[in-house]
Design a protein around this nucleic acid. Structure first.
Lengths: 199, 199
DNA sequence: ATTATTTTTAATCATTTGATTAAAACATTT
DNA sequence: AAATGTTTTAATCAAATGATTAAAAATAAT
């Protein structure tokens, strides 16, 4: 617990921004969460906006960067990669259920933030990604395949608030759904590769 | 174009709230969008919060209510219902791409708003829904099936901002993905029903 | 036409909010 | 220990924001 003040603020910002989103977050919330004087936030990070961009980059890294090592690894074949990515994502999202919604929503809200969009472009245009996508035996566009694969992982997490709030699913049942979803992903992906596209 | 003042405000609120979310929306934005004096917003709707709840209910209705008639219709069998629901959703979301993210996000942000949660509970606990779910021949929980079905429709829309901003997909290519996604939904759903669950 | 009622406006209020400042407290160097 | 540099605090600012008010304008009722 001997975090530097700077780290305490960044950590608090990460938590509050992710939970409430940029617009609903008050710099005072962050200061309180970090247990520091409000002025220190500006002393270390200049502005709410700057602090946000920092956090946002880190969260994007967390969400997308985690799979890069797997994609790059030449020892794994496609189905091994898919298995590992699934494993990584279910762990990551179980620990950070708000993460995907946060990133999706903030990118939607500020699509023209140059820092962030530049960062995203770099991540999504890496040669390694293209290489793996090219190796997918599918009739649909490889990127379309990716959307479905990732969607089947992410959507149950994004939909959690509505499932719980609707009262249709208890917290325990929700966990059961997540667990089962993880188990069936290999089948879902296999089925995806067998999808027939009519020309 | 002879909308009443009240309707003009509600329409503007619907637009701005959906686009920017509750927290980022300024009542002045709504007033300007509606072309009315700011005070009229409070005159007709008391507060930002009240106006928001009104809009939110309508949007929830739009997002979930549209499929009720299809579910209820006794003349259609399951695959016909799925086909019709797919059709309805792709049309709805093509016209309202921000709608699902808005609803998902705001419910996440205010899960304990009593009005809204009560409304959601009613929608999700209708007997008709249960009846249809019970008719799905699947090894997974019927509600889990629903999450995957709806996810394969909604996720491509939720992911749009990130796909476009990443530069990996042009607007035209995105439309192509959506179009193809719609076309393969019957296969996806069929595959879903064939998923094997190990006990 | 006059009065009453409803709708609209401009001005203003009280809070909230992001940010700054000047001084204090603390740490480091000489 | 004195001087210098860094971090922290309390107080404050200016702008933004949701909301109200009192008067004006428009509409309806008598």
């Amino acid at each position: 617990m001997t975090d530097s003040t700077e780290d305490k603020i960044k950590e608090a910002a990460r938590k509050v921004f992710t939970q409430k989103g940029y617009a609903a977050t008050r710099t005072r919330d962050i200061a309180q969460e970090a247990g520091i004087n409000l002025a220190l936030l500006n002393y270390y990070f200049r502005s709410k906006e700057k602090l946000f961009e920092l956090v946002m980059k880190e969260r994007i890294d967390e969400l997308f960067g985690a799979v890069i090592p797997v994609l790059v690894n030449k020892n794994d074949n496609l189905s091994q990669k898919i298995e590992k990515i699934t494993e990584i994502y279910f762990n990551l999202l179980s620990q950070n259920p708000d993460l995907p919604m946060f990133v999706l929503n903030e990118i939607k809200n500020k699509p023209d933030n140059s820092h962030i969009s530049k960062y995203l472009k770099e991540l999504f245009n890496r040669a390694e990604l293209q290489e793996v996508l090219d190796s997918v035996p599918t009739q649909m566009q490889p990127f379309h395949f990716l959307v479905n694969f990732i969607g089947s992982i992410v959507f149950p997490f994004v939909a959690r608030p509505i499932l719980i709030t609707s009262g249709r699913v208890s917290s325990e049942e929700y966990l059961e759904i997540i667990k089962q979803q993880k188990a069936i992903i290999p089948q879902l992906v296999q089925n995806l590769m067998n999808i027939k596209i009519e020309k």
